[in-house]
Design a protein around this nucleic acid. Structure first.
Lengths: 211, 211
DNA sequence: TGTACATCAGTGAACGCGCGTTCACTGATGTAC
DNA sequence: TGTACATCAGTGAACGCGCGTTCACTGATGTAC
């Protein structure tokens, strides 16, 4: 068993992990232009600086690489949600806080959020299915969060429907953030707050108007 | 000048138009699996039953073909909107009527709506830009429609924000319709009605809660 | 109406290119003793 | 600690394939007179 290593060098598995990381980063960056589907194994290898066949030491195919990217992108998304919940903000601050956190996280993890938004209706059936499954899971979680707001007159199915509405609206906001110049930042946040507030006001006043 | 033609035959330009139509249809159908970006000129030509080079008699590139498909897909989308407006339905029927019409049109023009939904974040930058521009136009139109509802306390910018919320929610509903089995039809429509109603109730009660 | 010429949708051969994948390999790192 | 062997991340040549695009062509349709 090897415990120490010669100064300034890495173990074999550290080197391997570094190459793997470089492949993931290259794929995130290159696919921003073409989508994952328009990405070739050879392009990725070239960007990383290895020979094409070295790719196979890390992933069996571009699709498998895509699945790894789905996983780590949703880690970023879940980190964002944890950040929204943190401090358990009172109702009147939820909208402002959520939009702040969304904006911060989308900007800090551009590549991950862009990847999710793009591959949600992207070219690879396998990756698309993985993204949608993650979103389905996420919508269910958000629905249980919503149940804590003052809308106990909502059935759990309706909470899920509401959750989906919020998710698709916030995906659209994230896309806007990603493709707009920085100077539109405040305008986009203002619009996002309006949308969220409309949904929440609508939800709170819903049943009373319905029957 | 040729006025009559021999029985059972077509003019040269009729034949050409028929091939063009076949190319558009083949592209719509083939791209359902791979996206427009994953489509090759040779695949399309093979499906149509012409030699690859014949493609160039009709389009200079797959991108140009894509732009033609964006145009005709939005013709379908505008036909849907005209259908919603027809009869100038009273406020309490707007939600039901809109969801009925959306469901009917998406099912009748599956390929067009699937194309729009997919290429909105698809692989070709040119086509993506065209789709987004059409949506931007459409959102502005919807905003002026909304101004006729009892929400005169809304600024025109806020009406636009509201319009965008409705559009992204309805795109998501259209995607659900397209990828779900027929037996979920009523459930999807019910969920769509809930979402639209939440947005409208929220919009009507908005300003009062805000200040 | 009949003839001579122009147009042009579609053909078919050919090209160079980037692709994914196979295979045998190298040589530094790791392990057993 | 030193030696002999195993592992395995990355190499490099080679393959067959589908791709977009070029070019000269064919022959039915259209036009002028």
């Amino acid at each position: 068993m090897r415990v120490e290593s010669s100064a300034g060098s890495e173990t074999r598995s550290e080197r391997k992990e570094r190459t793997r990381r470089a492949i993931l980063d290259a794929a995130l960056s290159l696919s921003e232009e073409t989508g994952l589907g328009g990405l070739s194994l050879r392009q990725v290898a070239k960007e990383v600086g290895v020979v094409p066949t070295a790719f196979y030491r890390h992933f069996a195919s571009i699709d498998e690489l895509g699945l790894a990217l789905v996983e780590e992108s949703f880690v970023s998304l879940r980190a964002m949600i944890r950040d929204v919940r943190r401090g358990n903000p009172p109702l009147e601050e939820i909208v402002d806080r959520s939009v702040e956190v969304l904006d911060d996280h989308v900007r800090a993890q551009r590549a991950h959020f862009a990847f999710i938004a793009r591959e949600r209706s992207g070219g690879s059936a396998v990756v698309r299915a993985a993204v949608r499954q993650e979103f389905a899971l996420f919508e269910r979680e958000l629905a249980t969060d919503l149940a804590r707001l003052p809308m106990d007159h909502w059935s759990s199915e309706d909470l899920h429907v509401l959750s989906r509405l919020i998710v698709v609206a916030m995906i659209a906001v994230a896309e806007e953030i990603l493709e707009s110049p920085d100077r539109e930042r405040d305008a986009i946040k203002r619009r996002a707050r309006t949308q969220l507030l409309v949904v929440i006001v609508g939800a709170v006043n819903w049943r009373s108007e319905r029957e």
